[in-house]
Design a protein around this nucleic acid. Sequence first.
DNA 1: GTAGGGTTAG
Length: 516
Amino acid sequence: MSEESNPTQRTYEHLILSCIHQSSLVDAQWVHRHLHENGFDQDPFLATKLINMYSSLDLIDDARKVFDKTRKRTIYIMTTLVDMYAKFGCVAYASAVFNQMAVKNVVSWSAMIACYAKNGKAFEALKLFREMMLKTEEDVGPNSVTMVSVLQACAALAALEQGKLIHGYILRNGLDTILPVISALVTMYARCGKLEVAQQVFDGMDKRDVVSWNSLISGFGAHGHGKKAIDIFKDMISCGISPSPVSFVSLLGACSHAGLVDEGRALFQAMRKEYGIIPSVEHYASMVDLLGRANKLEEAAKFIDDMRIEPGPKVWGSLLGSSRIHCNVEFAERASTKLFQLEPANAGNYVLLADTYAEAGKWDEVKRVKKLLESRGLQKVPGRSWIEVKRQIHSFVSTDEFNPQIEQLHALLCELSSEMKEKGYVPQIKVVLYDLGEEEKERIVLGHSEKLALAFGLINTSNAEPIRITKNLRLCEDCHSFTKFISKFARKEILVRDVNRFHHFRDGVCSCGDYW
DNA sequence: GTAGGGTTAG
């Protein structure tokens, strides 16, 4: 009673925490008002909590107002704000706050690096990390938390050499016993194409939790080793580790990449029945992807109709992606109608629909969708590929005229193309979804960013060294076929990570078995 | 006493 009439900081803290827990806006506003009336809103400790409260209610403007009104801005409040902007994807705001900080410690640096790493700004994450390494202040030296975000950035870029340097730093500083660090290392090596090393790091762990296992499962899955991923899952179970919802997303993804439809269906059932895990939108989306890729679009659509929860954009996006692969106009239209309502600003959905129409020869419809895209002020994301050579990442886009080596690369590709054609390579010009002549189409496919990166790799790597390329979109059929030929006739091992999975080309064959 | 981190994914 005395506490209520004379509320203390601790009481307010608990009230705020309970608002977060119940996610109640009305209570949150009441607590804030009460706190203000009693002169507690200048308390930096409580201001931090208030920002967390509004942030948990998705009210970032209200959170910002709390910050703006707080006169004493501790090095804690500002980091909380950086983190809040990071979680809402407002990278520019996060960095503005970070730059305003007079004193930065390891936590604030780590928060900003994590912000970049989580929001698709891996280059910026690595750049900030390098800047941090140059600081001599105490309490600015990177620790295990920093390492995790830096490893994520290396994984995103497939920056193997950078990642190895970080691994060395981790070993020298005794951070190699910390579970999150090792899991991030396993993921980094797997996503850089070094599955054997990922396995070695995993094998070297003396303690493993479900996340460590999930890292390995998803790694094998992305490389197309579906059966192996299932075996790893079984090993995990026999080690007495309970699977998490993420374990099943990874497993279903592994089945999808390998075309293991029956195994995927069985796992989806077992998830609920044997492990008591209620399927979430991600699981449904993975199942739709598994069925759709296997050209079981009717079953995928029925699966959506039977869902016990509302199908979100991920689920419809999976159906649209599969419809695009199999050029099924009916299902592409059904999925995109939903998607244009659910996420009108996602340019990728318009592109997938337009591409489906184009492949079906419905050029009027293609024009209609492209106009719709433009009228909403959206743009197609350009295809981009990159390759790491001598610790340096080189990035390519097909329209890049400023690259100093571009003429040399084009010349090499032309030469290779004619040679390959004599050996049976047929350019898959149908992937060019514009109403153009054959020669023009052939010129376009030869300029795809992945081929530019490949040519760059052929020039700049030694014979024994495999070429490792990363790309932001799905690998096109022509690049796939071209790369298979090159791997045989240039006797070169080539590893391509596209947006979904790995393709390992060796002696004219790809590890995906042409199923991707 | 308050702040940062691992596994999915298209």
